[in-house]
Amino acid sequence: MIPATFEYHPASSVDEAIALLSQYGDDAKLLAGGHSLIPTMKLRLAQPAHLIDIGRIPGLSYIREEGNVVAVGALTTYATIERSEVLRRYFAVLPECASVIGDPQVRNRGTIGGSISHADPSADMPGAVRALKAEIRVRGPNGERTVAADDFFLGTFTTALEPGEMVTEIRFPLPPARTGSAYTKLANKASHYAVAGCAAVVTLGADGACTAASVVITGAGTMPTRASAVEAALMGKQLDEATVAEAASHAAEGLELMEDIHGSKQYRAQMAAVMARRAILKAAERARG
């Protein structure tokens, strides 16, 4: 498996990367960690004439608290996210999600910005980012803008990024008290991609009832999809086994289900419900402290 011929451009700054993207247009691809793009290039599913390496740009790998948000640089690796005490304190779903991506080699090179920009429907991180209702900062030839995670993912390998734009930062709003989050998935045994997965975030009131819920299904559909029916079924309820199981049974509603050698639409719908139940129960347990 050998990629088609391409020209390699190491960028030393965000501005240089954007200039190169503007210069080469649709013939160019950004390379961050490379664990999504390089395999597709080897299979010649992607054949960019120009590869712009942003992996050496300084100042894009960090995790830091800034007021009421935690900011994560686009080049922050999964391994760094997995080890972060700050993220573990506020958003257990992120280290948990990172810990089940690929293998140690992938986690040490793959980046959060690369994952959400690639928008593979079976990837793990896009679902967690959307469940946490993050804000995604992007920069391009027309300057910087912020896109809500709910508006960022548009379809299979498709995002709201405009030509010449790149992700620079993901910002996670700090959760209210008594909030828990979790990620569970049924993994493909070879690739470790999600056949069906769920990222869940729940907030409990003083009486233990659910006051907020954010549930996103990944792997089963053509993009990370908010399970609105599940969220509605949780609101105002005590999150016991029976209530959560009933709510999770709606996990496949609204999904444009995928079907392939790893599972039929019916199988993925059922597994989405199973993963949703497990993730919600774990998130609720964490919310109770």
Rank of each mutant, 00 (worst) to 15 (best):
R64A: 12
N188P: 06
P121A: 10
G34S: 05
R44S: 05
S122D: 08
R288K: 15
I54R: 00
R288H: 06
K185W: 03
T168P: 04
G59D: 03
K133I: 00
G205Q: 07
D260I: 08
A220H: 07
F6Y: 13
T156H: 10
V147M: 07
K189D: 10
Q47A: 13
E65F: 06
A79S: 14
I217F: 06
P10T: 11
Q105D: 15
S13C: 02
K29N: 12
Y90L: 10
V69L: 05
Q238G: 08
A98P: 02
A209S: 15
V70E: 00
V167A: 05
I280Y: 00
Y62R: 11
S36L: 08
S13A: 10
A200L: 03
A182R: 06
T77C: 09
Y267I: 01
P58H: 07
S12G: 12
H118C: 09
T80I: 06
I63Q: 12
K189G: 14
P39W: 06
E16G: 11
A251G: 14
P173V: 01
Q105I: 14
G25W: 04
A79L: 13
A227S: 09
A273F: 02
N188F: 02
M125L: 15
D120C: 13
L257S: 09
P176V: 09
L43Y: 07
F157Y: 15
V147S: 10
A284V: 10
P95G: 12
E285R: 15
K282F: 10
T203L: 03
I52C: 11
K42I: 09
V215G: 03
A134S: 13
I101E: 00
N108C: 12
Y78S: 08
E144L: 13
A148C: 11
K133A: 13
M41T: 01
A131R: 04
L255C: 11
G197T: 07
P175T: 10
I112R: 00
I136V: 06
G236Y: 00
V167K: 00
V167C: 05
T5L: 14
A131L: 01
G205N: 06
K282T: 10
A134W: 05
I136Q: 09
G143W: 04
K265G: 06
V72G: 04
L174A: 12
L87A: 07
D124P: 11
L281E: 09
P163K: 07
S249H: 07
I280S: 02
S12Q: 14
E162P: 08
A19S: 15
N188G: 09
V129K: 04
A252C: 11
E285M: 14
R109M: 15
V106Y: 00
V195F: 05
R56S: 13
H118W: 13
S122T: 14
L87E: 01
